[in-house]
C-alpha cells in the first residue's frame, strides 16, 4: 500500500476527532438522530483510516484480534442482557419502562436506550474494524 508522510500526519490528526465525534453520536442517540450503530461505524472507520494510512499491523496493535472479539461479544451480550433483564423484572423483552429505578418510566427508557446504544456502539465498532481488517488480510498475505 502506498502511504506518505502527509497522509499519515493527517490521519493522526483526524483519528481522535473522528472517534470523539463517533462517541458523541453514540451518547446522543436517545435524544437526537444517531445512536449506537452510526457512532460505532464512525469509530470503526477511524480504525480503518489508521490501517489505510499506516499499515495493517499497526492497526492490529491498536485493536488486536482478541480485543475485537471481546468487544464484539460483550457489546452484543450487553444488549441481549438488558433485554433479558426486563424479563427478569416481569416485563416483556426490551420493555425498558418496567425496570424499577427511581425515575419516571420515560426517563428509565431513555437511560436504558443510552446504555443499549453504548452496547451496540461497542459491538459495531469492533465489527466494522474486524470486517475491514479480515478482508484486507486476505489480500495482503
Amino acid at each position: 500500500m502506498m502511504t506518505t508522510v502527509v497522509i499519515q500526519t493527517i490521519a493522526r490528526v483526524v483519528v481522535p476527532f473522528l472517534q470523539l465525534f463517533g462517541l458523541y453520536i453514540i451518547v446522543h442517540g436517545p435524544v437526537s438522530p444517531g445512536g449506537g450503530f452510526q457512532g460505532g461505524v464512525i469509530v470503526g472507520a477511524s480504525m480503518i483510516l489508521l490501517a489505510l494510512s499506516y499499515d495493517l499491523s499497526s492497526a492490529e496493535t491498536k485493536v488486536s484480534h482478541k480485543v475485537r472479539i471481546a468487544m464484539d461479544s460483550t457489546g452484543a451480550l450487553l444488549f441481549a442482557g438488558m433485554g433479558l433483564l426486563c424479563l427478569l423484572v416481569g416485563g416483556v423483552f426490551l420493555e425498558y419502562g418496567i425496570i424499577p429505578l427511581p425515575m419516571a418510566p420515560a426517563e428509565v427508557r431513555g437511560l436504558m436506550i443510552l446504555l443499549v446504544g453504548v452496547a451496540i456502539g461497542i459491538h459495531i465498532m469492533a465489527l466494522a474494524a474486524s470486517l475491514f481488517l479480515h478482508l484486507a488480510e486476505e489480500h495482503d498475505t
Partner: peptide, 9 residues
C-alpha cells in the same frame, strides 16, 4: 444468540 456471542468470549 446469547450462546453465539458467549462462545467467542
Amino acid at each position: 444468540f446469547v450462546g453465539a456471542y458467549l462462545s467467542p468470549l
